[in-house]
Simulated assay, not measured.
Amino acid sequence: MTIPPLGFGTFRLKGQEVIDAVTTALELGYRHIDTAQIYDNEKEVGEAIAASGIPRDELFITTKIWITNLKPEKLIPSLQESLQKLGLKQVDLTLIHWPSPEDKVPMEEYLPMLLEAREQGLTRAIGVSNFTIEHLTQAIDLVGAENIATNQVEIHPFLHNRKLAEFAREQGIQLTAYMPLAVGKVMQDPVLQAIATAHQVTPAQVALAWLLQSGYVVIPSSTKRANQQANLDAAKIQLSQEDVAAIAALERGERIANPDFAPAWD
């Protein structure tokens, strides 16, 4: 299954704000919408999807199972609740949002439940998020690389996650880049500004173009129509080898999403 390369992220968007943002995104042509149980916005995302009138088979909807729902008896009921909130019979992709903190819930208990959810028709595909090489290796041993549609991780010009990216590529697992704009920090970087000026685009568009050109799925988020459109237009930008080399030099291991329950990163 192919994941649409440019999606719309809904992290930190709630209430009417997320309804308006998703509504606008769908109007502009986004067809890949990313949400999660912990975002507390599945109901509103579902409302925007329903109101759009876009045929279900034209949309790609992702949600994620939160760490409190990893126990085998909780995982499928929690996904059923997500579907109820979204107003959908099935999502296209269900991810484990984070590996169990300190691996208290063994992966052997929750990954097979994702397969079971797929068997029950609750989700078309399954995957993971914030998995390290060690976690991904274990997941491959348990369910096979062919059953892991993606590993959604933080990647942007200041955090390239190279070891993990190389491993995932070797295993044939697609990576999805979240926080692709480093929560706006790309806009202030002089290197990205210079590349943007040369292409007559914005630094944000350069960052997204670099990720797309590198083969990642990207899920930027914005509440502003103009920015949403600009993010879509980033797919049209072709960066030169010199541009890519300049962005490669920006790597500084600057991780933004690093909660206290995060795994030991590669």
Rank of each mutant, 00 (worst) to 15 (best):
V183Q: 13
L192H: 09
W210Q: 06
G184D: 14
A194N: 15
I219N: 05
V191R: 13
A182L: 07
A194D: 15
V206A: 04
V201N: 04
M187A: 15
H199N: 15
I195P: 01
Q213S: 08
I219D: 06
V206F: 06
L181G: 04
L208I: 05
S222T: 08
Y216D: 10
Q205H: 07
L192T: 11
A196L: 08
W210M: 10
M179Y: 00
Y178Q: 03
Y178N: 07
H199P: 02
Q188R: 10
M179P: 00
K185I: 01
K185D: 02
V217A: 03
G184S: 03
L181Q: 07
I219L: 10
D189M: 11
V183W: 14
L208T: 05
K185T: 03
H199A: 14
V191F: 09
Y216I: 01
L181F: 09
A194Q: 14
W210G: 11
H199E: 15
V201Y: 08
P180T: 07
Q205K: 03
T197I: 14
T197R: 14
P190H: 00
M179S: 12
H199V: 00
P220Q: 09
H199W: 03
W210P: 01
P203S: 06
G184Q: 03
V218Y: 03
P180S: 15
L181A: 07
V217T: 10
S214G: 05
V191Q: 05
Q200F: 14
T202A: 08
V186Y: 01
A198G: 06
V183F: 12
P180H: 04
A209C: 10
A194L: 10
S214Q: 15
A196Q: 11
G215R: 06
T202D: 01
S214L: 04
A209P: 10
D189T: 04
V183S: 15
V186K: 12
Y178G: 00
V191M: 08
A204Y: 07
V218N: 00
K185M: 07
D189K: 14
S214H: 13
T202P: 06
V217N: 06
P203E: 03
V201I: 13
V201A: 13
Q193E: 13
V183T: 02
D189P: 03
V191A: 10
S214K: 09
A196H: 04
A209Y: 00
I219H: 01
S222E: 04
G184R: 11
L181D: 08
Q193V: 15
D189S: 11
L212E: 03
Q200M: 13
L192I: 09
Y216K: 04
A209I: 04
I195A: 09
A198E: 11
G184L: 06
Q200T: 13
S214V: 14
A182F: 01
V191I: 09
Q200K: 10
Y216W: 00
D189I: 04
P220C: 05
V186H: 02
L192D: 05
P203Q: 13
Q200A: 15
I219S: 02
Y216L: 13
V183L: 09
M187V: 11
S221T: 13
V191G: 04
S222D: 13
L192P: 06
V217M: 02
Q188D: 10
Y216N: 06
A194S: 15
L211G: 12
W210D: 00
H199D: 03
I195L: 09
P203K: 02
P190I: 00
W210T: 01
V206C: 12
A207V: 00
Q200P: 06
A182E: 08
L211K: 08
V206H: 06
P220E: 05
V201R: 08
H199S: 09
G215E: 12
